[in-house]
Structure formats: structure tokens, C-alpha cells
């Protein structure tokens, strides 16, 4: 077997060692076995570059151009100026934030309570977990259609129930665009909580089960009641779980589309009360054929999500990462 000078597999003191020898050996030991993993990772990376990276770059480019019959014309920041002075955009953004906040404010406390109770269940916890998780596996469109039957003001399940117990003045739900607790926004928040609760419960439950039992034993010895233990041990220990849920929940809430589209149509009916920023982006691009404005919306949306992620990381997770180091 012929060996090349400088090969990492040359024995020390063979006379072929150079000043590069130790470095090459170090490099070789670092990369040995690694290339095979890069090879496996390459196909999905290529797919992401082709189907996510490239379209993203195109969207960025399109936001600075205008389509004309003569071709693309550079427009600078014109479409961003149009967007930021557009009341429909701000309305959609406000809706998205409001619906997201309402969802998280309800689902996280509910999930914590349900997960804490499930954590105490001795028998039948698994079937219960499956039942709570089932809506998560259902298509958002199917859920929206189902809730349309629930919240339909005239013949829907909910108002039918309210009438059957003697109420004559029933809420209008999906026919009411006002900011109130019985309008369209409230209805879609209930829908989102119903659909997402199972996932939040499962993640919170995992967080609960990672809390060392010793802490509870020590608290019990110190005479803490179960409620005191829950407030002083359980909730603080769930901080990383809550941060994870808030971050992922925020990004999901910002990109909400399928259920709102199914219930509210392209315009987020009634009166744009259900129009999210992604729906606005879709409507602008594919209903009104204003692709530059739609691309500008996508860029702003990207920056918002990026900003939320950075703020969440620096604000909440830095402590956890430092602790890990």
C-alpha cells in the first residue's frame, strides 16, 4: 500500500512528518465519519434551498420591483411605503396579533391546568392524552367547517343549545365583526383553543414529568400544601416549557391561515374581522394580482417573525443557554 507524505495515517517519526502533520491529523480526526452525515443531509438541504430558499429570495426581490407589460421595473421601497400606509394591512396585522394573544392567553393556562390534572391521573391517562390530542391531527379546514356549524347564528349548535335553555337573545358569533366576547373573533379563538389545546397539554405534561420528584418530597417534608408546591415548584420549573410554547405558539398564531380562510373567505368576513396578515398577503397576491405588494407583505412578515424570535431568545432563553454551558 502506497502512502503519500503528510497522510494522516503515517506513523509519527517515520521521517515523512512535516509541520502540517499534526494539523492534518487533527482535521482528519475531526472530519472522519462526518462527511457521510453531510452526504445524507445534502438532499433535504437542496430541497430546502430550491423550494424555500430560492422562492424566499424571489419574494425579497419582487418586493423591490413592479410588474409592468414591459417587464419588471425597479421600484425601490415604493411597495413598502404603500404597505405601511395601507389601513387594510394594519388591520390584518392588528387582527393577527389580537387573535394570537387571545389564543395564547387562554390556551397556556388551560393546558397547564389540564396537564397538571393528567399528571395526577393513575389510570387511563394515555387514552385521555390521545383524546385531547386528536383535534391536533385534524385538518384545520375540517375543524373550521365543523365550527361553522357550531357558531352559525341562526341554526348553529351553540345558539340552538342557548335557545333550548330559554335564551331568546343569542350572540351573532360569525355574523358579528365587533370587538366583543360573542363576535367572530371570539368564535375563532374558541376554535383555535379547541384545536391546539391537546398539543399544549402534551408539551406541558412532558415539562411536568421532567421536574425532579425530590423537590416535591422536600416541599412535603417542609409542610407545603399541594397548592403551594404547585405555585412554588411546578410553575417556576415549567419556565422553559412556557417559553417554548410561547415562541412556537406565537409563530403559529402569526402564520394562521387555513381555518380563518375557510370561515371568513378571502376578505376575512365579516368586515375583515377575521383577516390575518397571511390572508392579506394571499388576497393581495392571488386575488388582486398585486404580487409586489404581496411580496412586500411577506418580507415585513418575515422580519416580524425574525424579530419575535430574536426578542424571545434574548429575553427568555439566554439564561437557559448560559446554564447549559
Amino acid at each position: 500500500m502506497t502512502r503519500e507524505p503528510g497522510s494522516a495515517s503515517f506513523p509519527a517519526g517515520s521521517g515523512y512528518s512535516t509541520s502540517e502533520g499534526p494539523m492534518r491529523r487533527a482535521f482528519s480526526s475531526l472530519t472522519r465519519g462526518v462527511w457521510v452525515w453531510y452526504t445524507f443531509l445534502l438532499p433535504p438541504l437542496l430541497l430546502i434551498l430550491v423550494f424555500v430558499g430560492y422562492p424566499t429570495l424571489l419574494a425579497f426581490r419582487q418586493s423591490f420591483y413592479t410588474r409592468t407589460p414591459e417587464g419588471q421595473v425597479f421600484a425601490g421601497t415604493y411597495h413598502f411605503e404603500r404597505l405601511l400606509t395601507n389601513s387594510i394591512f394594519w388591520g390584518a396585522l392588528g387582527n393577527t396579533i389580537l387573535l394570537g394573544l387571545a389564543f395564547l392567553a387562554i390556551v397556556i393556562p388551560l393546558a397547564t391546568i389540564f396537564a397538571s390534572m393528567l399528571n395526577r391521573v393513575r389510570h387511563g391517562a394515555t387514552p385521555l392524552k390521545v383524546i385531547y390530542f386528536l383535534p391536533q391531527l385534524t385538518s384545520s379546514v375540517a375543524i373550521a367547517i365543523m365550527f361553522h356549524y357550531v357558531f352559525q347564528p341562526d341554526w348553529g349548535l351553540l345558539n340552538g343549545g342557548l335557545r333550548s335553555i330559554g335564551l331568546s337573545e343569542v350572540p351573532l358569533w360569525l355574523a358579528d365583526p365587533r370587538f366583543n366576547l360573542t363576535g367572530s373573533r371570539a368564535a375563532v379563538t374558541v376554535l383555535a383553543v379547541w384545536a391546539g389545546l391537546g398539543y399544549f397539554i402534551i408539551v406541558t405534561l412532558a415539562g411536568l414529568q421532567s421536574i425532579p420528584a425530590d423537590l416535591y418530597d422536600a416541599a412535603a417534608i417542609d409542610g407545603a400544601t399541594p397548592l403551594q408546591a404547585w405555585f412554588t415548584i411546578t410553575l417556576p420549573s415549567l419556565r422553559p416549557t412556557f417559553i417554548f410554547l410561547i415562541m412556537t405558539g406565537t409563530i403559529d398564531a402569526l402564520s394562521r391561515f387555513g381555518d380563518l380562510w375557510t370561515l371568513g373567505g378571502p376578505g376575512g368576513a365579516p368586515a375583515r374581522s377575521l383577516q390575518s396578515i397571511v390572508m392579506y398577503m394571499f388576497q393581495t397576491g392571488f386575488e388582486s394580482n398585486d404580487f409586489s405588494l404581496s411580496a412586500a407583505t411577506a418580507v415585513v412578515f418575515f422580519l416580524i417573525v425574525l424579530g419575535v424570535t430574536i426578542i424571545a431568545f434574548w429575553g427568555f432563553l439566554r439564561k437557559e443557554f448560559k446554564a447549559m454551558k
Binding site: 355574523a175 358579528d176 365583526p177 365587533r178 378571502p266 376578505g267 368576513a269 365579516p270 368586515a271 375583515r272 388576497q283 386575488e287 388582486s288 394580482n289 398585486d290
Partner: peptide
């Protein structure tokens, strides 16, 4: 199938809802 339709539709919804 363009923006004028959606503009009018949304405005109508507001008028019909009383907002």
C-alpha cells in the same frame, strides 16, 4: 375577481353589521 369587488364586499359587510 379583483380588489374593487373585495373593497365593496367588505364595506357592505360593515354596513350590514352596523359598524
Amino acid at each position: 375577481a379583483a380588489q374593487p369587488r373585495w373593497a365593496m364586499q367588505t364595506a357592505l359587510e360593515g354596513a350590514l353589521a352596523g359598524t
